[in-house]
Design a binder for these strands. Structure first.
Length: 550
RNA sequence: GCGCCGGUAGCUCAGUGGAUAGAGCGUCGGCCUCCGGAGCCGAAGGUCGCAGGUUCGAAUCCUGUCCGGCGCGCCA
């Protein structure tokens, strides 16, 4: 339960009391509207504001102001609440008790890294599959967005109390592997790269590095040469991908190979299951899934007329394989170009008897890479693309993490390499890190003169507006985290972290921490330490370092 | 043509039915005898693509329309 949850419950109780007392009349059988609760922008509107009375007005057939007054009158005594007032056209404004607010510093500080965590009402087991870039070339910056979103989302979901499995799906199956092998062989022999082949400097590197025994085996069986060399090449590419992810600070619990879905019979069993419920049929020599039965535009092929499975076949097997591991929810983080496949996979899950809502795809919008106003093509096949390492060399991991996780993943973004380089020194991420370093510095200076944090009397001592404002921001952290988790979004976290850093700067400006007044200094040091701790928590959710000095 | 996602300050983006629409960057003007100036204060800058509709109230919901991206395969 976060502070916001507590207040919402208190409002609901007051509303129900008003109904029970007959002050508020709701016709039987009407469902009560949800209670909106937000932090108003204007201080004169209190610390929290609710529109509950205005929402209730139509069903209660009464003036919003009168309803608000009835709820305010019925509002039970809360240790955190100083006053509940009413403002036109019917807002319920809640003012927190300043001494209660300041008194929370000790608890926040004591909670440390666990502050704000574990608030999920019903913890679930959630599988997050992300990146899953094909092993046909190194990661490029287009993959970085999904990597950071998946990583931060996993951290956020874990933080609120879910059990998260991070997973990378490795497509080691099918014609793309052969095409990579043939491209490498073409490079070696100086012949033209096949039309569906891969270009780019990394293919040259692979050609140069191909070991003799692999090439000998390819020579020995020309029909199988592409597959043999491709198998070697994808392994090598995969090692490079793992190194890149390592550098990004992104780790996975499970690397799932597409081939195992076939080898272990997951695909076959899934198709049998669909067939048993008449969701599969044969036509034109192919095997089809009746996706139209669930609203899709057309039915989808599972096995082609040549007997080979489609990518969709693996998807079907994969859903059941994941769910068999006990996950309550599957989150797929896909590029926006995959949105066409969302419906069919969810349809298949439903057809197999799974809960459709438990299979969720988050489509990450495209990143357009631009240098000097000119777009840089990102296709592996075209050969020209920017590797992750190049970007990280130029802008740094922390700045890149901040850049990608601070934007809604539904928004397409332009990434100008020159601009990113130029702005990397002015990136807001440094502002947040700077606040953490500054807080650390104050604590060090305090220790030098024999002062330390003392939170016992903060409720009485911290009544300055800047102190109050800062603690209120600290109190917002659990809600910011909970909202991010609930919405499966990341950008709430950097937004919050920036505002906290900003509130800390204002406090630093207005309130000198190390003074002649020992009790006040120690209380302020407790506030500084609590702030430092919450800043570190926020940065940790983003996978960004919290430096003690810069 | 159909579908999905976008269109908010010069630029990059927040704002998932509420009070005078916000932030960063950029621009302009101030602030260093003081715990970290990677900082602080202030200013300029908006027909929320457009047009209807729903609502006490719309950037937000609905319909239409324009613009941009992506998709619409027995490829992955």
């Amino acid at each position: 339960m976060t502070l916001r949850d507590d207040l919402r419950q208190a409002i609901a109780d007051a509303r129900d009391r008003a109904i029970a007392d007959g002050v508020l009349v709701i016709p039987d059988g009407t469902t009560l509207p949800s209670i909106g609760l937000e932090r108003p922008a204007k201080p004169e509107h209190g610390d929290w504001a609710s529109n509950v009375a205005m929402q209730l007005a139509p069903v209660a057939r009464a003036a919003p102001m009168r309803i608000a007054e009835a709820i305010a009158a019925a509002f039970g005594s809360q240790p955190s609440v100083l006053a509940v007032s009413v403002a036109p056209p019917g807002f319920l404004n809640i003012r927190l008790d300043p001494s209660w607010v300041a008194g929370q510093v000790g608890a926040i500080r004591d909670a440390g890294p666990s502050y704000g965590r574990g608030t999920a009402a019903n913890p679930r087991r959630i599988n997050v599959e992300f990146v899953s870039a094909n092993p046909t070339g190194p990661l490029h910056v287009g993959n970085a967005r999904g990597a950071f979103v998946g990583d931060v989302l996993s951290r956020v979901l874990t933080a609120v109390g879910h059990e998260v499995g991070r997973e990378y799906y490795f497509n080691d199956f099918g014609t793309q592997v052969v095409n990579l092998g043939l491209s490498v062989l073409a490079r070696r022999s100086g012949t033209d790269i096949p039309e569906d082949g891969y270009r780019g400097a990394y293919v040259d590197d692979l050609a140069a590095a191909a070991p003799d025994d692999v090439l000998a085996r390819a020579d020995a069986s020309p029909d199988d040469a592409g597959r043999l060399v491709g198998a070697w090449a994808t392994e090598r590419v995969r090692a490079g991908i793992e190194d890149s992810l390592d550098r990004l600070g992104v780790r996975f619990d499970v690397w799932k190979e597409e081939s195992t879905l076939h080898d272990e019979g997951w695909v076959g069993r899934a198709v049998d299951r669909l067939r048993a419920s008449d969701h599969v049929y044969e036509a034109d020599g192919a095997t089809w899934f009746r996706s139209t039965a669930f609203g899709d535009d057309k039915d989808r092929v599972i096995f082609r007329s040549n007997g080979l499975p489609t990518y969709f076949a693996s998807d079907i097997g994969y859903v059941t394989e994941k769910l068999s591991r006990g996950f309550d929810e599957l989150i797929y983080i896909w590029g926006a170009d995959h949105h066409g496949t969302v419906a069919r996979v969810r349809n298949a899950a439903e057809a197999m008897g799974h809960d459709r809502a438990a299979v969720r795809m988050l489509l990450i919008a495209w990143v357009r890479f631009v240098r000097d106003g000119e777009e840089i093509p990102m296709s592996k096949r075209s050969g020209e693309f920017i590797t992750l390492d190049e970007v990280l060399d130029e802008v740094g991991v922390d700045a890149a993490r901040w850049f990608f996780s601070s934007r809604a993943f539904t928004t397409g973004i332009d990434f100008d390499l020159e601009l990113a380089k130029k702005q990397s020194n002015e990136n807001p991420v440094y502002y947040v890190q700077y606040a953490h370093a500054r807080a650390s510095s104050i604590l060090r200076n305090a220790a030098d003169v024999g002062l330390g944090p003392q939170a016992a009397d903060t409720g009485k001592l911290l009544d300055h507006p800047a102190e109050q404002e800062l603690v209120r921001h600290l109190l917002d952290f659990p809600d910011a985290l909970a909202i991010a988790a609930e919405r499966r979004e990341t950008h709430e976290v950097p937004r919050y972290a920036y505002e906290l850093a900003s509130a800390f700067s204002a406090f630093y400006r207005d309130c000198k921490v190390l003074t002649e007044d020992r009790p006040l200094s120690e209380a302020r040091l407790a506030l500084v330490d609590a702030t430092r701790s919450v800043l570190a928590n926020g940065l940790d959710l983003l996978g960004i370092s919290a430096p003690e000095t810069m």
